[in-house]
Design a protein around this nucleic acid. Structure first.
Lengths: 250, 250
DNA sequence: CGAGGGGTTGATCTCCTTCAACGGAGGTGG
DNA sequence: CCACCTCCGTTGAAGGAGATCAACCCCTCG
């Protein structure tokens, strides 16, 4: 239990400020949020389909994923979430889960009550818009992944993922685009890219052999990021990282 | 130019009311929206990446798609939109497009200015939440498609699409789940399912031969919808069609 | 020291792609 | 009213990216 999880809220606020212009009062409101802190071992389900949730999951530490599962157990990870990400902020407006949230590695998650988030939306319309905008970034990642899954090769999908996570880690202050921690197993990578673990393994070897990406023990190194982005056909626009939008409202 | 596009706004309102509880005043506010009406031939780009839009596209008639395109021209349709759908409502909070919107067949689109939508969000916080919730439904469709693209066979992807469009048509009052108009070419179907047009053709023949779906001249008929849903592993939860959520706010 | 999880490898299979051609329906113009 | 064109659906043959199945290795941890 952590009543004032300041450092993580700062990360979350930083994430919001990257896309939304918030005044001092609104920023204080974000920092005043509270929630219950939970620690999770790797591969623990945090939210499951059918569940009706009354709080949103703010990632404080570790790596978290949203996924869909088939009846035979095969999974599709639909997005990864890192520290400072509110991985199911959308549950505020859609509390009945049709998705799953899981810890990829040991993770600390702060459950922020919907009541608090809802109150902020009413009191500060700019925050409602900021939250909505944050969810729009997620949606943008989803459509980009649709493109990857539907129209790209194994090599392109993996390199695209390494580019995306690099930029997001850098934006969150958790590394640089060319060197960051990403402790996903090849199994998880396969679930994110729609491949099998075996084929991820072979493709990673291929990518490594070309010197494009070092991926070892959960650390990613990218000697030439721009070259990798070219191979992945990576266009960073979908991450909406180029500064906050002007305020729609007074 | 159509200053009071009533019938389409009613459809849009109906769509919102299916997920959000809105009072009389809020409903009137929606119906009072105005916009410029545009007619599009098939396969016309309505919004292109890089563009900064200042209005959202409300589909009045026809079939519209959002898609991403690779450098070589290959496309991935990320979602379809039918009459009553505001296909880029999210552009209100993210006006710089990283996506494309195109007409699949002849389509009529009403461009509703962001200024009007933004004003409604501030004046009626419940509408801001309703808009956000509407976008969340879209996002939910995106993640479901990620699952389809990453983990399902050609047959499953196509049958899933027919199930989804059936339910959406029915919800919009544009047909029934087992008989509706869907004038997409096999080429468009292939762009939506991440396949080639040739393989869509063969798979459709297979599905037709089994009597699962009749798809001819843009009309879909599904003799046994539940059987089809079982094959597609279709779970309707992601469409959030089971009634409006309780008001978060007064 | 044994168990288990994750990474690696090889052989084989198959679903889907690719390329190329043809047919039919509808629209248009001479 | 027919000739032509174009778009869309269809078919065949061949090839390839990735799946599948089954080992085996290594490291970590209890």
């Amino acid at each position: 239990m952590d009543r004032k999880p300041e450092p993580t809220l700062s990360l979350f606020l930083k994430r919001l400020l990257r896309r939304s212009d918030l005044n001092a009062q609104e920023q204080r409101a974000i920092l005043s949020l509270t929630g219950v802190t939970h620690r999770h071992r790797p591969n623990e389900d945090i939210v499951s389909p059918g569940e009706r949730v009354d709080s949103a999951c703010l990632v404080a530490k570790g790596l978290v994923a949203r996924y869909d599962q088939r009846l035979d157990g095969r999974r599709q990870i639909t997005s990864f979430y890192i520290a400072g990400d509110m991985c199911d902020l959308h549950s505020l407006v859609a509390p009945k889960a049709s998705w799953s949230i899981t810890s990829v590695i040991e993770a600390t998650v702060i459950r922020v009550p919907h009541t608090q988030l809802g109150r902020l939306c009413v009191e500060y319309p700019a925050l409602a818009l900021a939250f909505w905008r944050d969810c729009t970034v997620d949606a943008s990642i989803f459509t980009t992944w649709e493109g990857n899954l539907g129209r790209k090769s194994a090599k392109e999908r993996l390199t695209h993922l390494f580019c995306e996570m690099g930029l997001r880690m850098e934006a969150a202050g958790l590394g640089t685009r060319q060197a960051y921690e990403f402790r996903a197993t090849q199994e998880r990578l396969s679930e994110a890219t729609g491949l099998t673990a075996v084929h991820v393994n072979r493709t990673l070897q291929h990518i490594r052999a070309e010197g494009l990406v070092k991926f070892d023990r959960g650390f990613v190194e990218i000697p030439d990021w721009n070259a990798l982005a070219a191979i992945a056909e990576f266009d960073p626009g979908f991450l909406m990282l180029d500064g906050p939008q002007k305020r729609i409202i007074s």
